[in-house]
């Protein structure tokens, strides 16, 4: 087993190329248990590709990824979900023609122990676990303020609700680490503030480790304890928000060389 102070998720110099494009180069990251970190960078920097590498959608060409001591590369996405790494998607990927409740209950399934035969025969264990899933799903929906809308089709929800439903669904897999891909995209300032509160709350209540990608700098700087900046597939800076805001390489990546600066520091 890993020592208690070892990082929960440890990524060591992973790389992937698509044809001639080296989308991610020597990316490394260590997330401590219960930490809340951000991954930022200009468009096309490779942030989502990093998420796809972590969750098994892509396999890294090189490097190692360890979750609580277990090596992840080579596992398929559903196996990584079982191992305790959940994610949301940048371009929302809910199950649109299923109810809000069913969206969350589907993610509960991976912890179910009853068999398909048990489900067909309505075995006691099946009914017991179905009740557990229903209760758990409704608790999660309650936390995310969606319990009233549980019978609606996911596709009929407003955009902000869909984003929150994605997080609720990922939470239902009972993850150790959750990866949020632009959770605040398309939200208004009020919703964004509420979301920050929610992320803090689930981190504390579920002793979760959170890594998020976000373009809303106010949100990231306010919420995250440490930030990793990616540009052209490479880590160009890593540290607490205050240091990142002053880092000249970060400013250059976002705004270009100093001569071109007009709008000031991104904040």
């Amino acid at each position: 087993m890993t020592p208690p102070d070892a990082p929960l998720l440890e990524v060591a110099s992973i790389s992937i190329s698509f044809g001639g494009l080296r989308a991610v180069r020597e990316f490394s990251l260590a997330l401590g248990r219960g930490s809340l970190s951000g991954l930022i960078g200009p468009n096309g920097a490779g942030k989502t590709t990093v998420f796809n590498l972590l969750t098994g959608v892509y396999q890294p060409d090189a490097g190692t990824i360890r979750l609580a001591g277990r090596s992840l590369p080579g596992l398929r996405p559903h196996e990584i979900a079982h191992a305790g790494l959940a994610r949301t998607f940048q371009n929302i990927r809910l199950f649109p023609d299923l109810s809000v409740l069913d969206n969350v209950r589907i993610a509960c399934h991976l912890r179910a122990r009853h068999t398909l035969a048990g489900a067909l025969l309505r075995s006691p264990l099946h009914l017991l676990e179905e009740r557990g899933m229903l209760r758990r799903a409704r608790e999660l929906l309650g936390i995310f303020g969606l319990d009233d809308r549980r019978d609606e089709y996911a596709r009929n929800l407003p955009y902000g609700d869909q984003r929150r439903l994605e997080i609720a669904r990922a939470m239902a897999t009972e993850p150790k680490v959750i990866l949020l891909d632009e959770p605040a995209a398309g939200m208004n300032p009020q919703e964004t503030r509420e979301l920050a509160g929610l992320v803090r709350r689930i981190r504390t209540d579920f002793s979760l480790t959170v890594l998020l990608i976000e373009h809303d700098m106010g949100f990231v700087m306010d919420l995250c304890e440490s930030i990793t900046v990616l540009d052209y597939g490479q880590v160009i800076a890593h540290g607490p928000p205050a240091a990142i805001q002053r880092d000249p390489k970060v400013i250059e990546a976002y705004l270009g060389a100093p001569a071109a600066v007009e709008g000031g520091v991104p904040a």
């Binding site: 996405p77 959940a86 199950f95 069913d102 589907i106 009853h114 899933m133 990922a170």
Partner: peptide, 21 residues
């Protein structure tokens, strides 16, 4: 049943279904 919802999730979004285990 839980299995049925898992079947339906594949129809809805295969990538998301995989990601949800």
């Amino acid at each position: 049943s839980s299995y049925g919802r898992a079947f339906l999730s594949i129809r809805e979004d295969e990538v998301a279904a995989e990601a949800m285990g």
